[in-house]
Design a binder for these strands. Structure first.
Length: 437
RNA sequence: GUGGGUGUAGCCCAGUUGGCUAGAGCGCCGGGUUGUGGUCCCGGAGGUCCAGGGUUCGAGUCCCUGUACCCACCCCA
């Protein structure tokens, strides 16, 4: 059997790879003026970084985490059926999202000392989740995102959203085709009481709801808002909303975020049932949908003022977001605006005889040294088929070197679009090509 | 974890109630007189029909098992 890729993985080749590179480039152009620097944290972390940060009630941690074991430890795990024998450092996992690892790094390196300058970083990395793959959902996928630590002001929340929408715009989205949902999840001052209300609400209506939601009541009641079951949705429509139970500080924060968004001309929809799947969020949460594109949300984020403490650091506010590369690409395609290719102009240097390949070799070196993307024949093809190949490569110019040209100390330069040809002297080839590109 | 689908040339696929020396289109390679592309014409190469087992005179076609990938549910980017 031929070798095959692992389930839920994808090779980034050609067009796909160019799109990923393009996305990283656009991300840098959008984020860096806001003061964000690129970072890369390890794809592999101690399991606890994710367990503590993302939360044990989330599906991400409960069933989607890729655990990593060395060969020797794997044998012990399989042999004894328990991971009690594993030391903490051997409890490893692949990152399922970007925030926890960055926060771990900030804590470990003390990058935001008490009251210090905020830490602002962006990343473009592969993430790993052990789910069953489907459209727009891979086991290894890519996200670009930012993390901003040490900035409690609602302007930071708003600027994150502004950057997020600007990223979409620069990727080619028509923002009127996207939907930005926002909500506030409250904070430790108001959420526990609200959470308790939702819990008892669900328990009061337990007989009308699905098994899973009854379980959610205890584990993570707010997620019942996400249930797809029609009856549950019906019931939850009457459930108390965080919006109506925010403490004064949270309400004020939320109002200010909205004012900043209004001032920036960002269109949004308030969704009081928006509940994101990671436990660390506080106050502002947001999500971007591409209605009709057939993929879920294409990005989202929010504030996580408690996360640094969960990772063992001093209390430090944080806010950030991530965009799913593959989903964003699917949405762009669905809207008929795939991320455009940017083919660099190419030059093809053709030989009219195998004995002239030494000369071709020299000319290609000169062109490449001048920064021009240059190709030639490496298969001993006829001149005719060299032209065919040049055409397939999208060459804008073909240089021909043959017996006549050699005798005249010249090179023939053909413009493939205009079909014009000129004979230029051998030592001015680079200039002649440059002039026609 | 649950359900459904698919696996035949490089690619997208056809292969009818089992009889094939396994096909089309696209792509690829070569040629269409002396050194020139995209169109057109001619020719050509290329396949352990996912794997293993079974039924049969005979299996790409039927049965079983395995495996891979895709899609959906759940959840999420």
């Amino acid at each position: 059997m031929r070798a095959q890729k692992a389930e839920g993985t994808k090779d980034l080749i050609g067009r796909d790879m160019r799109a990923w590179q393009r996305m990283q480039r656009v991300a840098a152009e959008v984020f860096e003026p806001f003061g964000f620097e690129a970072v890369e944290t390890p794809a592999i972390e101690q399991l606890d970084v994710f367990v503590h940060g993302i939360g044990t009630s989330t599906d991400v941690v409960r069933k989607e985490m890729f655990r990593v074991f060395s060969g020797a430890n794997l044998a012990r795990v399989l042999g004894e059926g328990t991971d009690a024998c594993l030391k903490p450092k051997q409890r490893l996992a692949l990152r399922p999202e970007g925030t926890a690892g960055v926060v771990r790094s900030v804590v470990e390196n003390n990058l935001v000392p008490q009251g210090g300058t905020p830490f602002k970083a962006w990343y473009a990395e592969a993430m790993f989740r052990g789910e069953r793959p489907q459209k727009g959902r891979l086991r290894q996928f890519h996200q670009v995102g930012i993390e901003w630590l040490g900035a409690p002001d609602p302007a930071a929340d708003a600027e994150c959203i502004i950057m997020l929408m600007e990223l979409y715009r620069r990727l080619g989205f028509d923002l009127s085709q996207l939907r930005l949902l926002i909500n506030s999840m409250g904070d430790p001052a108001c959420r526990p009481a609200y959470r308790e209300q939702v819990r008892s609400f669900i328990l009061d209506h337990a007989d009308e709801m699905c098994d899973e939601c009854r379980e959610r009541a205890e584990v993570n009641p707010l997620r019942a808002f996400d249930c797809k079951n029609d009856r549950c949705r019906e019931v939850m429509r009457e459930a108390p909303l965080m919006r109506d139970h925010l403490c004064d500080d949270c309400r004020d924060h939320y109002e200010q975020v909205k004012r900043y968004l209004d001032a920036a001309g960002i269109a949004y929809v308030e969704d009081p049932t928006l509940v994101r799947g990671l436990d660390y969020y506080t106050r502002t949460v947001f999500e971007v949908e591409a209605p009709g594109a057939g993929v879920g949300s294409i990005g989202g984020g929010g504030r996580y003022d408690g996360l640094v403490e969960l990772e063992g650091g001093k209390p430090t506010p944080g806010v950030g977001f991530a965009v799913g590369f593959e989903r964003a690409m699917l949405a762009l395609e669905a809207f008929g605006r795939p991320l455009a290719d940017e083919p660099a102009p190419r030059v093809y240097v053709a030989n009219a005889g195998a004995d002239l390949r030494g000369e071709v070799f020299g000319i290609t070196r000169e062109l490449r040294a001048a920064g021009i993307v240059t190709e030639a024949d490496y298969q001993g093809r006829s001149l005719k088929s060299q032209f065919k190949q040049a055409d397939k490569l999208g060459a804008a110019i073909v240089c021909v070197i043959g017996g006549d040209e050699m005798a005249a100390g010249a090179v023939r330069v053909r413009d493939m679009r205009s079909h014009e040809e000129e004979l230029v002297s051998r030592d001015t080839v680079v200039e002649a090509v440059h002039a026609r590109l």
